[in-house]
Design a protein around this nucleic acid. Structure first.
Lengths: 250, 250
DNA sequence: GCTTGAAGTTGACGTAGCGGCAACATCTAC
DNA sequence: GTAGATGTTGCCGCTACGTCAACTTCAAGC
């Protein structure tokens, strides 16, 4: 007894299009193809189809499904499945983290926050600075920085989020008053700047001065910090230089 | 200050191809396109790109990313994200179940079992009989059956897996000895057959007789049960008819 | 001014797993 | 003989780009 494509489709819950597709990629070849082109399936193919659908529903690609069935009595099949399970577990964990991040993003939006990565930083995969940071300072430095972040307390994290804006605003006020960069009030703010920077890495004297210069040189930092006021960024750089020369070791 | 495509790509960690793609689908249009066709981006586009990558990494499609950013200050965006979170949670649960099923499949293969859905039935999504069952008996009956299965004990599940083969083998032996279908030994096996069938649904007299007839009429049941011995299936049907008439209510 | 290399451009094809046409052939029933 | 169901073979479409190919343009060095 042979079944037509529609009969097989109905009884297995897939469409005839799917069966034709499986034929075209050689995954499930009909028992017989009549001279008029019609496909006919037998018990053997029905059994194979069940196995295909079982494995497909496990999330395997059709390629892999074919391989597993071909080696179904050998060790290979088990290995493939075990590897696939590993993958599933990882995916599941990844989705769990995503749920957290989506939650954080929603939270942030509700409070009227902007949708910027800084605000949703936690558990976040695509840090917008990371790619460039790795290129500019190397993988080692970036990894070390992440390592350090993992040891943060709640207070550290709070500081990392809020301190820079405080410093920038404070400096803007002092600069407006004409206070010199060597003044203690300025240097105290730079002290805070140095502390929060140290949450990520420990700048030496020259490195800290270089950081200040980079703020000036890099358009994006300049914009972010000065918000249009380029002189403020230069003020910050000068203050950092003074701080580095007076307080930091080589 | 304008950045070239390669500069933007480096600083954001995507490829220039991706940026061109985003331009071609209108997701991120450069600030300026020079007469020679070159793309130039400004701060505004960099910010937008960061938002795009943030949302993309949350697992949203680019279509949806565009929508969310367009409505980023409205309630819509939050709703979309909330819906997306629901989806993520569901996916995560689904993957969890898949892990279980893969495990069960591996286990089964290790013991030399066949890779058939009956053996890995638990938590399984694509029951090969379900589609046809829904068509043949209706959604209501199938759903009721699933409802009943949810109340199974371990013993019930064991019975459901093993009883039918026992019945078929027992009947084959008795038939070979020339025992009549009315004989008590046959009827005891049918009693077991009725019990296990009742784990799924409760057949009335006529329904049970109809089931026996279907075993004979349907090629696949006939093959599955008789394994080539069509007379055995008819023997089963006759025995079921006798049982129904003597024991079952209308 | 010429050459060279880097960086840019626009197509176009490929990916996985089918869905959904269109255009045509064949089978079954009345 | 004709209609309606069922089949066939293309071919485009979908996602989010990767990966060529074939050119053009730009900046730098001789």
């Amino acid at each position: 007894m042979a079944w037509s494509i529609a009969e097989v489709a109905r009884s297995s819950g897939v469409t005839s299009r799917t069966l034709r597709h499986y034929h075209s990629i050689g995954l499930l070849v009909p028992a017989r193809v009549a001279p008029n082109g019609r496909r006919y399936y037998e018990q053997e193919q029905l059994l194979r189809l069940q196995q295909i659908l079982l494995l497909r529903d496990l999330g395997l690609s059709l390629d892999v499904v074919g391989e597993v069935i071909a080696h179904r009595d050998e060790q290979d099949a088990i290995e493939v499945l075990a590897k696939h399970k590993e993958w599933l577990v990882k995916e599941q964990l990844r989705l769990g983290r995503l749920v957290q991040t989506v939650d954080a993003t929603i939270d942030n939006l509700k409070r009227g926050g902007e949708m910027s990565p800084e605000n949703v930083f936690e558990g976040f995969e695509h840090n917008p600075y990371e790619a460039e940071a790795r290129e500019r300072w190397g993988d080692e430095a970036v990894d070390a920085s992440y390592e350090r972040m993992r040891g943060w307390t709640e207070a550290d994290a709070e500081k990392a989020r809020t301190a820079y804006p405080k410093v920038h605003q404070g400096l803007a006020a002092l600069k407006a008053e004409g206070v010199a960069v060597t003044d203690l009030s300025v240097q105290e703010l730079i002290q805070l700047h140095y502390e929060v920077t140290s949450l990520f890495w420990t700048p030496t004297r020259e490195a800290y001065k270089g950081l200040g210069q980079m703020y000036v040189d890099d358009e994006r930092f300049r914009q972010n910090i000065g918000n249009g006021d380029d002189a403020l960024v230069e003020y910050l750089r000068d203050a950092m230089t003074v701080y580095a020369d007076s307080k930091l070791d080589d």
